[in-house]
Computed example of a mutant assay.
Amino acid sequence: MFDRSPRQVRLTGVGERLPPEARAVPAAGDRARAAAAPAGPAPPHVRAGGPTPAPNGCPR
């Protein structure tokens, strides 16, 4: 993503294209939360993302 030389650091083509896409990620999360909000809060036993804990409470 960067071209580095002893005198400067410049973005590569990929480095120039990535920031607008990265900035769009939080907005996409906001839209997803807004879309799910009418359904109300999830029951306590429902997890959204991340690993599910083992039955004994220890991580797998």
Rank of each mutant, 00 (worst) to 15 (best):
M1L: 14
M1P: 07
M1T: 14
F2M: 12
D3W: 03
S5L: 00
P6T: 06
P6M: 04
R7T: 15
R7S: 15
Q8T: 15
V9K: 06
V9Q: 12
L11F: 13
L11Q: 13
L11S: 09
L11I: 02
T12N: 03
T12A: 03
G13S: 12
G13D: 15
G13C: 03
G13M: 05
V14A: 14
V14G: 11
V14Q: 14
V14W: 14
V14H: 12
V14F: 15
G15S: 02
G15V: 03
E16C: 04
R17Y: 09
L18D: 12
P19G: 02
P19Y: 00
P19W: 01
P20V: 00
P20Y: 00
E21T: 12
E21N: 07
E21R: 11
E21I: 12
A22I: 15
R23Y: 14
R23E: 15
R23M: 14
A24I: 11
A24Q: 14
A24Y: 06
V25N: 08
V25K: 06
P26H: 05
P26I: 08
P26Y: 04
A27F: 08
A27H: 13
A27D: 15
A28I: 11
A28C: 10
G29E: 13
G29H: 05
G29M: 09
D30P: 00
D30I: 05
R31I: 04
R31E: 15
R31K: 11
R31V: 08
A32S: 04
R33F: 00
R33Y: 00
R33M: 06
A34R: 11
A34M: 06
A34I: 03
A35H: 02
A36V: 10
A36E: 12
A36C: 10
A37E: 15
A39P: 03
A39K: 08
G40P: 08
G40C: 08
A42K: 02
A42E: 10
P43C: 07
P43N: 06
P44V: 11
P44R: 09
P44I: 09
V46N: 01
V46M: 06
R47M: 08
R47Y: 03
R47V: 05
A48T: 07
A48H: 06
G49R: 02
G49V: 01
G49M: 00
G49C: 01
G50M: 00
G50K: 02
G50H: 01
G50P: 00
P51V: 03
P51I: 01
P51E: 07
T52N: 05
T52D: 12
T52G: 04
P53R: 08
P53L: 13
P53V: 09
A54G: 02
A54N: 10
A54K: 10
P55K: 03
P55C: 04
P55F: 02
G57V: 07
C58P: 00
C58V: 10
P59H: 08
P59I: 04
P59C: 12
R60V: 04
R60P: 09
